[in-house]
């Protein structure tokens, strides 16, 4: 599985309240959530994002609440991968559990500007800025998590275990 698209660039501590404000949490409908994705930090995100685009952010992306609605909104908005210098731990966990690819790579984050075309090879963790030609190697997931992603998330992973 690979990702390729335009980068939307953000700073430190992008929290779950700006990714999907609580005022929209009276629904769990993924499409409706996606239509408000990033609204409080970037009002034009939903209008401009296209299938396959990436979010690139600095430290502690996804801090705050445990709302799975946050990675769900990002995934449903069409984002193929989030690259950050670091992630808040519940967001990290939720993303893996729902099958939103996320990679930690501070060096890549420094080398990517808003609007750059970025590609990612998930098997190797290679991140390439197609606009500048630079590439980086992100830490690949540990085997346990790779298995979970291969099974398309936690629920399927566990169901396979139950059946085996």
């Amino acid at each position: 599985m690979n990702a390729k698209g335009k980068a939307f660039r953000y700073g430190d501590n992008v929290d779950t309240d700006v990714i999907i404000p609580a005022r929209y949490l009276n629904t769990s409908d993924a499409k409706e959530l996606a239509s408000h994705c990033m609204e409080d930090i970037d009002g034009t995100f939903v209008k401009n994002v296209q299938q396959g685009d990436l979010i690139v952010a600095e430290r502690n992306f996804g801090c705050g609440s445990s709302r799975e609605h946050a990675p769900l909104a990002i995934k449903t908005a069409g984002v193929s991968c989030v690259i950050a210098a670091s992630f808040a731990r519940i967001f990290y966990r939720n993303s893996i559990n729902i099958g939103l690819p996320i990679l930690e790579c501070p060096e890549a984050v420094q080398g990517i500007d808003s609007g750059d075309i970025v590609s990612v090879e998930f098997s190797t963790g290679t991140i390439t800025n197609e606009t500048t030609g630079k590439s980086w190697a992100a830490e690949p997931f540990p085997p346990f998590i790779q298995e979970m992603i291969a099974a398309d998330g936690l629920i399927n992973y566990l169901r396979k275990g139950v059946q085996a």
Binding site: G64, S65, S66, E68, I90, N94, N97, I155
Partner: peptide
């Protein structure tokens, strides 16, 4: 575990408690 980030509150009583998401809660 709790599908709410402030589940960590119960450490006050010497429990290990932590927030997770809805998929973790379902599982």
């Amino acid at each position: 575990i709790g599908a709410d980030s402030h589940t960590c509150t119960y450490g006050a009583l010497g429990a290990f408690s932590t927030g997770v998401g809805s998929t973790d809660m379902a599982a």
